[in-house]
Design a protein around this nucleic acid. Structure first.
Length: 726
DNA sequence: CCTAGTAACATTTTT
DNA sequence: TGTTACTAGG
């Protein structure tokens, strides 16, 4: 629990035997199979410290690859606490960030232009749409993108695809798909752009064609750690192999039971075959779980044991018993959300609570009910700040300024704000560009020769040139301000719907830029890189007060909402895992193949094992999908749970008409807010849903409360969660 | 060229 | 249900 990393003198004493063994591992390959909550990160961090201290390895020779940038940040922080200044020289990063960093230096060796940009999936879609239209193909860009991702993520490239793929993919002929792929790549390169997958592929290409560069990088990565190894894909596998080289001091850490990124072509065999791939590898198993109560853990073990494609492994709890895991059945999704909100209101300690769900769409109802109950909440992941229209617009100016070849960005903002350059004009210019094989912006420059009324276009080109110049001279914050000024963007959105929100978002963008500048002090181009790689740079809007470098880190008193995927690697004292239903968990698209189904079960397992003290599972018997009511059935995974491990709570449906609890699971709830029990009348109270009100009458277990704006409500004291106010 | 209205579509998960 | 993509009329 106590996470003050031990002082330098006792790197080992706070660890168990298995952890110590892993920490002491020195040279050669090692696989650390680390179950959920077994102190995986801790072990890696200590191991790195041990390398530095005991083996006198130079920090500049250590690389640690994490799954997300956030994880990288956390690891760096912990290392900082532990090894001090040396942490600065450690290389801690995701595969993608590492690759980008390398390509920023050596990109030209593999044909990249200096100012190349990283396209996000939105940009990818735009580009794909264009290509599909060009080729006259009817296919969904999303589906095609999945195909391209597959081609790129499985190595083997296009030839393998043409050999192995079925006749039709994504609704089009295999050959056509291949054509799309080629066009897509060509177009990316012409625009000086790469997509996510390219980052890794190009790094591989670089290393394979230029051993001297590989060699250089290897010097910087003599000791390599790869976290979440179960979620690496073939490309990452290859990259790891290349970096590890002939004499691999490679330690991979992971848990096959938590492999949940198959859809991103992660290959669980990477971890299962590690000892074959790296002969002589030592294997360390961390099977003691420090995180969860045994009630939670035995549930988790029971669930995951049902997977057939799996190596036996059982996590042993260190913690004792704990409250029983609660299961709540709701008549519909709305009630489910209401239950969660009420229960959370009752529990208090919002900062310790997380609500996890399978699909992002589920968050809406939950948010709504939390808001009504006045429970502060934070949505993680979801619609990213940097995906909002106004933010993307302004960033498109920045990208264009940094890389004038970027025609996706160009097209995004030619007429935003509207400046009289309409669709037909743009079409004409692009046509010209294509015919002459010149970049879009070049065609715009030649507007006079192409258009009868080229003034606006001329002015636009001038603007772009101006900004391009500014991009070299100013930092990100100042540059973005300049864009806003030069385009009068704020006036433009002033009378749009949600103008306030959107203006606020622009302010946040500027603030994010300033913060970033203050912390890292880089160029505009580097700022754009950061954004491209970090799906959610800390949601800027949410930081309450940014004072020092995170003091003892008090978690904001907010409930956390996120998808199960996002929850990987995290833990919370109290977890609500909602929507445990057929077609949702397991998801309807994963019912046909055993591998997919088992991945869903692992997802469930990941959710369960996030909980430290208390876990609630819930499902609804009815749920709206696209506004259409659908009746649902409880997840088959629930059937895997032995009798007695779950306690069904069935409190209060809507006010009174619910059934009594079978076992009142939350009877032993930790630290509730001061809930009022006895009323005389006249008390001021607060209801999670109706807000503040006055008690009008009290009789038996029931009170009648007047809520301004709502009216009179008769409530069961026991269940209403009334809080007594002054 | 621009806007407002309607039709179509979408939801699995993300570096 | 909520968003985005197209269309017709200004």
């Amino acid at each position: 629990m106590v996470d003050f990393e031990s002082s330098m003198s006792d790197l080992l004493s706070s660890l168990n035997e298995a952890q110590q063994a892993a920490v002491k591992h020195f040279e050669g390959p090692a696989l650390v199979v680390a179950g959920a909550g077994s102190g995986k990160t801790r072990t890696v961090v200590h191991r790195i410290a041990y390398l530095l201290r005991e083996h006198r390895v130079y920090a500049g020779e250590i690389l640690a690859v994490t799954f997300t940038n956030k994880a990288a940040g956390e690891m760096k922080e912990r290392l900082g606490k532990m090894v001090g200044r040396a942490a600065h020289d450690l290389w801690v990063s995701t595969f993608h960030s590492a690759a980008l960093r390398i390509l920023r230096v050596y990109g030209e060796w593999v044909g990249l232009k200096p100012g190349f940009v990283v396209y996000d999936d939105d940009d990818q879609n735009t580009l794909l749409k264009e290509i599909l239209k060009d080729l006259g193909l009817e296919a969904k860009p999303g589906a095609v993108r999945a195909v391209l991702d597959r081609i790129k993520n499985r190595l083997g490239g296009i030839s393998e695809f043409l050999r192995d793929a079925p006749d039709y993919v994504a609704g089009i002929l295999r050959e056509d798909a291949a054509l799309v792929y080629q066009r897509y790549q060509q177009s990316l390169r012409a625009q000086g752009a790469v997509d996510f997958n390219d980052l890794l592929l190009l790094a591989i290409e670089l290393f394979e064609n230029h051993p001297e560069i590989l060699h250089k990088v290897q010097q910087r990565a003599r000791f390599i750690h790869v976290d979440e190894y179960q979620d690496t894909n073939p490309v990452q596998y290859r990259l790891t192999r290349l970096l590890a080289g002939e004499n691999p001091n490679l330690m991979v850490v992971g848990d096959p039971d938590q492999s949940i990124y198959g859809f991103r072509n992660a290959d669980i065999n990477n971890i299962l075959d590690f000892t074959k791939d790296y002969p002589g590898a030592k294997v360390y198993r961390l099977e003691e779980n420090y995180r969860s109560t045994s009630a939670i853990l035995s549930l988790a073990n029971a669930v995951i044991a049902k997977n057939a494609l799996r190596l036996e492994k059982t996590l042993r709890p260190v913690k004792g018993g704990g409250d029983p895991v609660c299961l709540f059945r709701a008549p519909n999704a709305r009630e489910e959300a209401a239950f969660v909100a009420r229960e959370i209101a009752r529990l208090g300690n919002f900062g310790q609570i997380a609500i996890l769900y399978r699909t992002n769409a589920q968050s809406r109802l939950l948010e709504e009910h939390l808001r009504r109950a006045q429970i502060p909440a934070r949505l993680v992941g979801a619609v990213g700040f940097f995906e909002r229209r106004e933010v993307k617009d302004i960033l498109a100016y920045a990208r264009l300024a940094v890389n004038p070849l970027d025609s996706i960005s160009l097209r995004r903002i030619v007429n935003v704000p509207t400046r009289g350059i309409g669709a037909s004009t743009v079409a004409k210019l692009l046509e010209h560009a294509q015919q002459h094989g010149i970049p879009a912006l070049e065609a715009f420059r030649q507007a006079e020769a192409i258009l009868s009324r080229p003034q606006q276009v001329g002015a636009f080109v001038e603007l772009v040139d101006e900004l391009a110049e500014a991009a070299f001279e100013t930092g990100p914050a100042e540059f973005l301000e300049r864009v806003l000024d030069a385009t009068d963007y704020k006036t433009f959105i002033k009378d749009e719907p949600d103008a306030e929100d959107r203006l606020a978002n622009l302010e946040e963008l500027l603030r994010a830029a300033r913060d970033w500048e203050a912390e890292f002090g880089g160029t505009l181009a580097e700022f754009l890189d950061t954004i491209a790689l970090t799906a959610s740079i800390e949601e800027p809007a949410k930081r309450v007060q940014d004072g020092k470098l995170e003091a003892p880190r008090e978690k904001a008193e907010e409930v956390t909402l996120m998808t199960l995927h996002n929850a990987k690697g995290l833990e919370f004292p109290i977890v609500f895992l909602v929507g445990v239903e057929e077609n949702l968990l397991p998801h309807r698209n994963s019912l046909n193949r055993l591998e997919d189904l088992e991945e869903e079960r692992r997802l469930f397992y990941v959710g369960i094992t996030r909980a430290q003290e208390r876990l609630y599972l819930s499902y609804a018997e009815e749920r709206e999908i696209y506004g259409k009511r659908e009746s649902t059935r409880p997840s088959r995974f629930l059937e895997d749970i032995p009798e007695g491990m779950l306690t069904e709570v069935n409190p209060f449906g809507e006010f009174g008409r619910g059934v009594r609890p079978v076992t009142v699971g939350w009877a032993a709830a930790p630290s509730r807010p001061k809930l009022a029990e006895n009323f005389k009348g006249g008390e001021k109270v607060k209801h999670p849903r109706f807000g503040n009100g006055t008690v009008v009458a009290a009789l038996g277990g029931e009170v009648t409360v007047h809520f301004p704006g709502v009216g009179l409500k008769k409530l069961a004291v026991k269940f209403a969660g009334l809080e007594l106010l002054e």
